[in-house]
Design a protein around this nucleic acid. Structure first.
Lengths: 191, 191
DNA sequence: GCATGCTAAGCAAGCGCTTAGCGCGCGTCC
DNA sequence: GGACGCGCGCTAAGCGCTTGCTTAGCATGC
């Protein structure tokens, strides 16, 4: 059994609140009460509301990059690699749509320093996808004219899930991830 | 020469502010000063901050639906129709990324009544895209297993532009729209 | 008997929105 | 055609409330 510290309870409460109402519309009193604590308790464990956002955002970026990197290493066949990368990236955004929403929509609410820090993760995610496309083109099994643009579009499919996906809806995350993966293969494979 | 009324100047100021900082982080004083007026002037022409958001959102939804409908009528060939629809939808989101951002990101900040009103436009946009796919499948020139899911994904490409697109960036709106249209044809056409 | 983890209370600032009233352009009248 | 008055578009001031965050202090476990 893992013990959940007060600090972590506050982070979880912040994820709920930020995803539901947005960073600017969330009050520190709301976060505290979701964690079952007094408003002042937030500042015992975190420096500011923004630093709480940064903690969530950084963790989310780390996870997303990890998912993409593992997926890229899961197959040596370029077509299958793209399929797996898009599948896993979309699945992650569906399964973690609340964190994903914070990562994607509250990017601008970070301080410039914090924003720069997570921007590095974003570039890394894009590069991994671009490298996978480049490799496939060089092996002659993928046909992609615009590699950066196509890489971005493949990631967009997953990212856009956080705008509307809710667990328990009419379509499961796995179903949508499979759809995206199929579309990705059609978009990129040579014929 | 068209005369810009004070009401319209406030709407334009609200578009700038909401797109830049988000609805919740925007103050009515900010909107007023961008329009070169006093804080109270906002309430001479608009009922509330939310009604200003609704005005912007409704206008944006109307325009987007109009764009999709015109594009759907622009060709009788199902493949070309999809190409044009995706091109125009993505182009609109690039050229109007500030309004698009408000339409997409501030949807939840509307009152339930206003949200229901714009939701009808969203369903209509999705239906137009689904109908175009269905027509192409029936004519045997498109091959789409999951019509609602694919329609949504095609629209996602355009919608996701508002998350990051800025005029004057390294890629033009037309360039991105062409890319999306090409990808859309590959995703849907029978071979 | 003291550090740790928390709370009650509150501060300064800023919020959406209201109220009371000012100035100016325009139609009206002698 | 000049004086007048009225209504429209706007502003100065501010009300009641909420915000992020701080401070002082209390209970609990070692």
């Amino acid at each position: 059994m893992t013990t959940i510290t007060a600090r972590e309870r506050l982070i979880n409460a912040a994820v709920e609140a930020f995803a539901e109402k947005g960073f600017a519309a969330t009050t520190t009193r709301d976060i505290a009460s979701r964690a079952g604590m007094s408003p002042a308790a937030v500042y015992v464990h975190h420096d500011s509301k923004e630093s709480l956002l940064f903690t969530v955002s950084l963790q989310g970026h780390r996870n997303a990059l990890d998912i993409i990197n593992r997926a890229a290493a899961a197959s040596t066949d370029p077509v299958e690699r793209i399929r797996i990368m898009v599948y896993e990236f979309s699945l992650w955004h569906a399964m973690h749509s609340r964190v994903g929403r914070i990562v994607q929509w509250e990017y601008h609410a970070l301080t410039p320093e914090h924003r720069a820090e997570v921007a590095a993760f974003r570039r890394s995610i894009e590069k991994t996808m671009q490298d996978a496309l480049t490799d496939g083109v060089e092996h002659g099994v993928l046909d992609v004219a615009d590699i950066p643009g196509t890489a971005f579009s493949l990631l967009s499919l997953g990212v856009d899930l956080v705008r509307w996906f809710e667990p328990g809806g009419s379509r499961s995350g796995a179903e949508l991830a499979t759809l995206h993966a199929d579309l990705a293969v059609r978009m990129t494979s040579a014929r």
